[in-house]
Every structure is written in structure tokens, then in C-alpha cells.
Simulated assay, not measured.
Amino acid sequence: MYYQWVDQQTQLSHLVEQINCSALNALDTEFIKVDTLYPKLGVLQININDQVYLIDGHLDLADLWQKLFQARLNIFHACGEDIDLIYHYAQHAPLNNVLDTQIALAFLGYGMQMGYQAALAEILNVDVEKDQTRSDWLARPLSEEQIRYAVSDVYYLPQLAENVIQRLKQQGIYHFVVEDCQHYCQSLAEKLPLDQLYLDAANYRHSSRQLMQLQQLAMWREQLAIDTNQPRSFILKNNTIHRMLERTPHTMQQLFELGEVKPAILREHGKHILKLLNELPDQKQWPKRLAKPYRYYLDETTHKIQQLLTVISQQYGIPTDVLLRKKWLQQLQSFVLNERQDLSTLNIYLTGWRLNLLTLPLIEILAQDIAARRSNISC
């Protein structure tokens, strides 16, 4: 597996030019993100026209990042962390030219989280080692094991992509996968406003007061994580926050007795945490309690939903868990229950190729169930 090590700024211009002429680029990144909020790039791997480049993350890659947004097609496997890193370094988003082979393989029935090593073994009958994932990618020089690992991550990726693309096109669902990859990259670019971050940890069991406490703690933690470049869990873990909501400590001693707050955080921020828990704004400003999960009124509703999914799955050969995820269905339930009309407010996955095929029929089924419930209540 021949590769070229790129550690000089002058080498990048030729590489960037090649991206212009390439039908696809296979990419991966190796980084360190142990004690920071933002990743530290160690190596960027890219395969352009069967030439593998290992690019030193210490270089200024601004031109290369921007070129990736203009490329014809960027191939990744399990791209989430890679895309997050590119957005961070490029300070630009979203990427609309990505094909993730992990997402593609999910459409082909290989499960939602098939790893790269397993994919190569299953699809290409190639065995690669994955034993350097947690090694120090900032150290120089790289070891032979690290180099072999880094090269293999993109050496076979074009072959894997070509195989799954051909199968997806034969099945007539390639454009479905491309759209889902675009939606995924778009979702990675979307950041909740500070005052809505609490929703990621909130549930319907929380009282309005607890939601206010959670909102204040989540906003404070996020801002501190950004300012100090620390992982959120280094400041307060979610489980610790939930314990605070349950007990609402009023004194430093009570906060200490939780046993879950790091001594440094307790010393520097303990009093402020107590203030966030106990000094709340006017009750009129507290968030409303979240709705309980909707329970179907009609016995046949679940059957109708499953039947719809089965028919579409058999027609297109797409697994039902790829067609519809539980959280999307819950969002649809809320949409119909609250009598919303603007389909553009739905999750982006539900407004593309799924809209006529799945979303609108589901809305009709849910509307029938909700109408039956309301009719019974009125009687």
C-alpha cells in the first residue's frame, strides 16, 4: 500500500489541484479528543485516484478544507466525527457531497452500525487491523503500525464505495442514500440554541421547576466547555445533573455529599451551581413540562404502521429500522397531536424521499387514531 507523507505546506497545492479532477475522494481523520471539547487533528488521510496521502495535521489546511466542499464526491465510513472535525477546522458547514458507506450498508441490510473492518471482510474479503484507534496521533514520527493503520483506512474505501454504489443503483435506491447522507451532514451542522440545550437531557417526568434548573445548568456548562475547551463531562456529567435535580442541594456541604462533583469544579464553581439550582427566574418563565409519550387509542394503529413499513421495506429492499426511527415517529405523533400544518417543521429525514412514501400515510394513520380518541372523550 503505497502512500505519500505530506508535512510541508508547499506540497498541498498539488494535492488540492488533484481534488478538482477527481470523481471521488476517500477520506478519514485521526485525532485526539480526550481532554478537550474540540478535536486536535493528527493526520488527515485522503485517497485521490488510488493515491493515498497522509497529511500532517499540524499544517494549515484551510485551502484543502474549502476544496472538500467543492469536490464532486467525498467518501467516508462512519463519518460523524470526521465531519464534525472538518466543520470545526473549516469554520463552514454543511457538506452536501458526502457518501457514508456505513449508511449505505444499512440500506443494504447490514445493520445500522457496521464497522469498517467488518465491512471490508464481508464485502471485499479483506482483513485489516484496527488496533491503533487510541494511539497518540499527535506524536511524531508515526510508528509503522500507525502508518499501516492510517493508510488502510482509505486504501480500500473507494473499492468498498464502488461495490455498494453499484448494488444501490441496481436496487434503485442510490438517490435515497445520497439524500440521507446529506441530511446527516446537515444535522451535524445544526446546533441547538443555548437555551434549548436542556432538551437533550429532559424528559416528561421532570417538573417545570426541574426543567428550569436543567436549562440553567445546561447553558452554564456549555458556555464553560466552550470557553475552556473541556469536554462537558469533565465539568458535570448528565447523571450528576439529574441527581442535583432530584435533591436540589442548598449548601456546599450538600453539594459535596452528592459525591459526583469533581473537587476542582466544586471549589471554583460550587457556589454558582447552587445559585443556578436555587435562584430561579419568575415561574412564568419556566419551561412547560414535556408531553408524555403518546399511546395509541385504536388497537389496529400499531398494526397499520407496521404493515405500511413492511410493504415499503419489501418493495424497495430497505430494512424497516432504516425507513423509520422511533424518535421520528414520536415527532410525527407530536406534529399530528398539536394539529400542525407546516411540513417543513418536520425532521428533515421525513420531508425528502420519505414524504409521499411514508410520512403522509403515517400522518393519516395517526390522525385517525387521535380523532378516535378525541371523539371518545367528547362523548
Rank of each mutant, 00 (worst) to 15 (best):
F234N: 14
E122G: 05
P231W: 13
Q70D: 09
P158D: 06
R134M: 08
L266P: 01
L105D: 00
L362W: 00
K33I: 00
M244Q: 11
T359N: 06
Q51V: 04
E81L: 07
Y89L: 15
M244P: 13
L105H: 02
L236Q: 03
V6W: 02
R221F: 06
H92S: 12
F76P: 03
V151Y: 12
N278V: 12
S187H: 03
I147Y: 03
M1N: 01
E222K: 04
I86E: 00
R167L: 15
L124H: 07
K130D: 11
N376T: 12
S334H: 11
S152V: 13
K327I: 10
R325G: 14
L12M: 13
R243K: 15
Y53A: 00
V151W: 07
Q285S: 15
R247C: 11
D50W: 06
A139T: 11
L142H: 07
N229C: 10
L343R: 11
Y3R: 06
L290M: 15
N347W: 08
Q315K: 15
N163L: 07
M212H: 06
R374D: 14
M112N: 09
S207H: 12
L343C: 08
E257K: 14
R373N: 08
D200S: 10
R167V: 07
I165C: 11
H183L: 13
L142F: 05
I75F: 11
R167H: 14
Y174T: 01
Y155L: 14
I235A: 11
A23P: 13
Q216F: 03
L236R: 01
Y116Q: 00
I32G: 04
Q253D: 07
L258A: 04
A225N: 08
R267M: 12
N125V: 08
L258M: 00
I305Q: 05
I147A: 08
V164M: 11
Y3P: 04
P39N: 00
R148E: 15
W5Q: 05
Y349S: 14
K33Q: 05
L308W: 02
S313I: 03
A104T: 03
Q70N: 14
G115F: 08
I75M: 05
V177N: 01
T251W: 05
Y184C: 07
R140V: 13
F176S: 04
Q18M: 15
Y316E: 01
Q132K: 08
L290F: 05
S135A: 01
L197K: 08
D60G: 12
L85C: 03
N238H: 04
S152F: 13
N25D: 13
H303W: 13
L73C: 11
A119E: 02
P281K: 04
A90Y: 06
L343S: 12
A23E: 15
